[in-house]
């Protein structure tokens, strides 16, 4: 498949929202692949600072009335806190899929009659492709992502 578009970027900690990329498909395609990758999905032990422990404990106390020991808090931060980013695609405004799985390297691949899970197969792709990066949660500054669109 031929690479049609490649872009990379960074998002800051606590960003919430969408980033949309628009690709004009100059020729009809029979196969399409949208690859999205990002890093820094989870905290490592070395990332756990007194400030992170304090801020997380405060959120849990204020939002849920929950008090955790430092050890339980540390386990929760390592095991449950994550950067969460989804990808969604449309062709000429028509929804063709969204990947909700928490994958740091994902493909939305279409080759009639098959398509990746979350995606709707179609025979041809023509017009304007929009790929939207849905950013639910970013736990670290300078989280890098890359988007590549390939077609045939």
């Amino acid at each position: 498949m031929k690479e049609l578009y490649r872009v990379a970027g960074t998002v800051n900690r606590d960003f919430v929202g969408q980033i949309t990329y628009t690709v004009c498909l100059e020729k009809p395609l029979r196969e399409l692949d949208i690859q999205f990758t990002f890093d820094k999905q989870r905290f490592a032990e070395a990332d756990i600072t007194p400030e992170l422990l304090r801020d997380t404990a405060q959120t849990l106390r204020e939002q849920y009335g929950q008090e955790l020991s430092d050890e339980a808090l540390r386990r929760a931060i390592l095991g449950e806190m994550k950067t969460e980013i989804h990808t969604l695609a449309t062709i000429d405004g028509e929804f063709i899929g969204c990947v909700h799985k928490q994958l740091t390297d994902r493909h939305m691949h279409y080759a009639w009659p098959e398509a990746s899970e979350g995606c709707i197969p179609r025979e041809t792709f023509s017009g304007v492709l929009k790929v939207t990066v849905l950013v639910f949660n970013v736990i670290k500054d300078d989280t890098h992502y890359a988007l590549t669109v390939r077609g045939k």
Binding site: F95, G118, L134
Partner: peptide, 9 residues
């Protein structure tokens, strides 16, 4: 499903 209707068909 979350944010997709791909299972309908």
């Amino acid at each position: 499903d979350h944010n997709t209707i791909s299972g309908h068909r």
